[in-house]
Amino acid sequence: MTPLLQVKNLAKMYGARIGCTDVSFDLYPGEVMGIVGESGSGKSTLLNSMAGHLTPDRGEVIFDTRADGPVDTVTMSEPARRMLGRTDWAFVHQHARDGLRMSVSAGGNIGERLMAVGDRNYGNIRARAADWLGRVEIAESRIDDRPSAFSGGMQQRLQIARNLVTGPRLVFMDEPTGGLDVSVQARLLDLLRNLVREMGLSAIIVTHDLAVVRLLADRLMVMKDGRVVETGLTDQVLDDPQHAYTQLLVSSVLQV
């Protein structure tokens, strides 16, 4: 099977400082990979470098496109990469307001992505927006409300709907449950797991919450000082960590 995403020796520098370096891995269709590490370990830099929000200094990010097979997205033209960002890729930001248009209605936020890929039928767009609101458990009656009138958890679910409506194959998530209270977080985890299974999505999730990756991710990558220090099956890395830093990380979690 061809990997959906192949990352090879990816590096991003901030002047002389390392953002992330020597990162290589393959992600296969349907796989969910978690990236953990403390703040400043380079996990968000890595995510943004893969997703095309930052330009990496070295390395390749090869995506298996529907039309042309594996293509290096780093050297791809800007319009082609933007098109990928609207179709096969999705990016869920930690702060929903970074991923939503706050002055546009909930339905408009979902519909915008459909229009970006050429959908022009208003009735069709509205029906799909309503369907997606239902899937992320937002009442259809809220379709014309602006996200600024939504709670934090609802905004996050709306952001997910907006991202998934075009049927992406790869979703990048930056702390998708960060800043939400635990009951809302549980609901979002359940939603994400079901969407991953039903749609066969691949996802890369950056988080510092080990409980979240245990439930969501199949595989785990642990980062420290911009480098990958350990990778493996999620439960194996968490239950039998090999690297000193991972052992420290796992043993530092508070028990409830």
Binding site: G232, Q236, D239, D240, Q242
Partner: peptide
Amino acid sequence: MRVIYGNYL
């Protein structure tokens, strides 16, 4: 058992 399941390396 955990070694067989791959939970321990």
